[in-house]
C-alpha cells in the first residue's frame, strides 16, 4: 500500500500522526496488521478470471475461448462469492494463454488446465504489463524494456533486464461451466512488490 497515493496532499500534519502511531506500538505493526481490501488482494484460490478489455470484457474466461498459441489475453481475478473484481492493484492482473500440453515443461503442466497457463502480467523489471507475444520465438515480450519470458517453461527469463521469472499462477478448469479458476495463489511475488 502506498501511503502518499491515498492522500491528495500529504504533509507535515500526516507525518505528525504517523509519529504518534510509532510511539504507541512496535514499528510497522500498525500498517502490517491491516489486511488488504478484497479489491486489492492478489488472486485467491477459487477466484474467477475475467477479461480486462475487448469483446467480453468483464466476463469469465472460458477454456474454449483460448486459441492454442495465440497471444495472451489479460484478466482480473474476481471473487466468486462477493463479485468483487480485484482490480485495486495492477499487480493483480493476470495473463492467460493456451498451448498444446505436450509442449509444456513439467512444472508448467502441473499448474496448467488442459494447456491453459496463467502468469502475473506484471514484468518484474519495471512493472509494465507484459502485453506482447513473439510467436516466432514462442516468448512473451514486455514492450517497455524488452524483457522476454518463456510461457511454456514456468515464465523463465529468456532475455532483457528482468531479474526473475514471470510469476506463475496455477489454474484449473471448472468443468461444469467451462471457465478457468485460480487453483493456488501466485507462486512468488509479483513485480517489485513484497508480495
Amino acid at each position: 500500500m502506498n501511503e502518499a497515493s491515498d492522500l491528495k496532499c500529504s504533509g507535515v500534519g500526516r507525518r505528525a500522526l504517523l509519529a504518534g502511531a510509532a510511539a504507541l506500538m512496535p514499528a510497522g505493526a500498525a500498517l502490517a496488521q491491516q489486511p488488504p481490501a478484497p479489491k486489492n488482494m492478489r488472486p485467491q484460490e477459487g477466484d474467477l478470471l475475467v477479461r480486462v478489455s475487448g469483446e467480453g470484457a468483464g466476463e469469465p474466461v472460458k477454456l474454449d475461448s483460448l486459441v492454442i498459441n495465440a497471444p495472451q489475453i489479460l484478466a482480473w481475478p474476481k471473487d466468486k462469492a462477493s463479485g468483487t473484481v480485484r482490480d485495486g492493484s495492477r499487480l493483480n492482473q493476470v495473463l492467460l494463454m493456451r498451448f498444446d500440453p505436450a509442449t509444456l515443461d513439467e512444472e508448467t503442466r502441473e499448474h496448467a488446465a488442459d494447456g491453459a497457463v496463467a502468469y502475473g502480467a506484471t514484468c518484474p523489471h519495471a512493472q509494465c504489463p507484459v502485453t506482447e507475444y513473439r510467436k516466432d520465438l514462442g516468448v512473451l515480450h514486455c514492450p517497455c524494456h524488452n524483457s522476454e519470458f518463456d510461457p511454456r517453461a514456468a515464465g523463465k527469463v529468456t532475455g532483457g533486464p528482468a531479474p526473475r521469472r514471470l510469476t506463475p499462477l496455477p489454474i484449473r478448469l471448472d468443468a461444469g461451466e467451462g471457465v478457468l479458476i485460480v487453483a493456488h495463489p501466485f507462486l512468488g511475488k509479483v513485480g517489485l512488490s513484497a508480495t
Partner: peptide, 9 residues
C-alpha cells in the same frame, strides 16, 4: 515510497 503497482515505462 512509490505505489506498489506503479508501471514505469
Amino acid at each position: 515510497t512509490l505505489p506498489e503497482d506503479l508501471t514505469q515505462l
